[in-house]
Design a protein around this nucleic acid. Structure first.
Length: 571
DNA sequence: GCCGTTTTCGGCCCGACTGTTTTCAGTCG
């Protein structure tokens, strides 16, 4: 059973407990456990198999450790089944509606016997919701709207890369106001998660009125969900929710920290504050009624005895302990990247030719790039066979002769065939500077077969880099079933690198797997997999995932000089 | 349900907005 599945069960358990009005701290313990499991870079399954003591994890006690083990071993949780027997399972669906939490869901169920979205919609139409105590016409209206919206709404988080395209112009639009002194996008956007649920924009200014007015009247706003003096929530025509918060400049740092989250990180920080007899909220750090910090994030951290922690690490996964022990990593930065090692050209499915790609890379300041077009197996992409590949190698030699300041390496993104062989003969691959090996077919093999397939490919010493190792396409295709832990272990033994593919819809590996690489001592490679010159700009998204995996400059292959790189590629 | 150089019991993070109330509960982030 995968981590995500274990986490899902715990969330469902928490939902059902909440509906039953269970102790809120007990509910919190389950949600906390879900988030711990979700964020673990190691499969909990294998920790259980190795007989590790789960109670060593903060937040997991004897009870939860037992439940996790039971889930992993039997696939079931008796307590969950019991609760599902007491309360209709679909009630947790109702709770997913905006405006409906555990209390109202329970009230609706108790009074009207409603346990499904269809029944809820009907009851709202018939005006039966407003009759309930604590409900009124407006709430009923909102619920009806939400049900209608849910059926259309793509209940998905959007890609970080897409979010950037919305956030950028919106920030510039607000920043045009003279009243705005500072503006930042906070939330998971600032933590650089691979997907973003909504945008949290934070503004510092003394008079909130004009900002609120300008924000809610933006042409892309479809609906203003709520609006007060310091906060407004809107839904854009695209369906994306955007929250705006306005604070005074003196509180900007505290608010930025607060709204950057994550929630788990914030809770941990506030707990530390309480231990120091301080109070932290979005307006500052307070001793009694006196504000003692708040204008910058650094001040806020300082008051709880910590150095500033980069947003990418703020997931309460050890960053606070590391900060306390002065062991925060010196995270890799985009400027540390010396080259892009996974690029396509118009020889296969790219849009630009060799020279255009090289010149754009040079303009971006890279020292080297590798051209890695597809191999023949990928016929629909006009994949290269040995003859065409050798022809491209000649072209690269010619190009290098006439090119100053950047070196173009000869490479290939070779398909890993179903049996683990590579799609081109060894003697051709031997002529290349580097080989990226990727799975592009047979995604539905069993976990065992898929793992063996990739292991076999890595057995070939010509395999330098495993491309997009999980094959996921965010919101479109699940990762294929594969034992990534075994892959990482094998990569460590064989001197193989794993890719951090920076395509917005891939981000594969993502942050937590990047952490797994780092721990195993396997070099990562951040590559854009560019199919056009514009795509070279995806690099920062991949670097962000490396940062989320606590990676430093030394953990990546393509932060090395050309000389070092070539040495490392010789397996 | 978790946790403990004040504690094995009694705590557990904090505030804005809305709609319903007539002082506040529920929800959300």
């Amino acid at each position: 059973m995968h981590n995500a599945e274990i986490a899902r069960r715990f969330h469902e358990l928490a939902d059902l407990l909440e509906i039953q009005d269970a102790n809120e701290f007990r509910v919190r313990a389950y949600r906390n456990a879900a988030s711990i499991v979700e964020g673990s870079s190691r499969p909990i399954e294998s920790m259980v198999a190795d007989g590790e003591d789960l109670t060593a994890i903060r937040g997991i006690g004897d009870d939860l450790a037992g439940k996790i083990e039971e889930l992993v071993k039997t696939g079931n949780l008796p307590q969950l089944q019991e609760l599902q027997g007491e309360v209709p399972e679909q009630l947790t669906e109702l709770m997913r509606l905006d405006q409906l939490g555990p209390k109202r869901t329970r009230a609706i169920y108790d009074a009207l016997g409603i346990g499904s979205l269809e029944e809820l919609e009907k009851a709202a139409e018939e005006g039966r919701i407003r009759e309930l105590s604590g409900f009124g016409p407006k709430t009923e209206r909102k619920i009806a709207d939400e049900v209608a919206r849910l059926s259309e709404r793509e209940d998905q988080r959007i890609l970080l890369g897409e979010a950037e395209q919305v956030a950028g112009p919106l920030v510039r639009y607000l920043d045009e106001l003279d009243e705005v002194s500072r503006i930042e996008v906070a939330g998971s956007y600032r933590r650089r998660r691979d997907t973003v649920g909504d945008l949290d924009i934070l503004v510092a200014c003394d008079d909130s009125g004009p900002v609120m007015e300008r924000f809610t009247s933006h042409p892309e706003v479809a609906e203003v969900a709520s609006q007060g003096k310091t906060r407004a929530t809107v839904h854009l025509k695209s369906g994306l929710q955007v929250d705006l918060r306005v604070v005074k400049t003196a509180s900007f740092g505290a608010a930025l920290h607060y709204f950057t989250g994550s929630k788990a990180h914030n809770v941990a920080i506030r707990k530390m504050a309480v231990e120091r007899k301080l109070k932290v909220n979005e307006y500052g750090v307070y001793r009694g009624r006196k504000r003692i910090a708040g204008e910058t994030e650094e001040e806020v951290f300082e008051q709880v005895g910590l150095p500033w922690i980069p947003p990418e690490l703020r997931e309460n996964r050890g960053e606070i302990e590391a900060a306390q022990g002065d062991r925060l990593p010196d995270l890799v930065q985009e400027k540390d990247i010396r080259g892009d090692l996974h690029l396509h050209t118009s020889a296969t499915d790219g849009r630009n030719d060799l020279r255009e790609m090289a010149e754009e890379a040079k303009r971006l300041g890279y020292e080297y790039i590798a051209i890695t077009d597809h191999s023949k197996r990928l016929a629909m992409a006009k994949g290269l066979d040995a003859r065409r590949l050798r022809q491209q190698m000649e072209e690269i030699d010619e190009l290098n002769d006439g090119l100053d300041g950047i070196r173009v390496l000869k490479g290939i993104e070779v398909d890993i065939l179903e049996d683990g062989r590579l799609d081109l003969p060894d003697d051709v691959l031997d002529e290349l500077d580097l080989t990226v090996c990727s799975v592009h077919s047979k995604f539905d093999l069993s976990r065992k077969k898929q793992t063996e397939r990739v292991l076999r490919a890595m057995d070939n010493p010509r395999c330098n880099i495993l491309g997009h190792p999980t094959g996921r396409l965010i919101n479109r295709r699940e990762a294929y079933r594969i034992d990534l832990e075994a892959i990482v272990e094998a990569a460590a033994e064989r001197g193989c690198c794993l890719e951090l593919n920076a395509q917005p819809s891939r981000l594969d590996l993502s942050g937590r797997y990047a952490g797994m690489l780092r721990d195993a001592g396997v070099p990562g490679v951040v590559s854009t997999d560019a199919h056009a010159v514009d795509h070279l700009n995806f690099m920062h998204l991949g670097v962000a995932q490396a940062r989320r995996g606590w990676m430093e400059k030394k953990h990546l292959l393509n932060t090395r000089t050309l000389k070092q790189l070539q040495k490392m590629l010789a397996r």
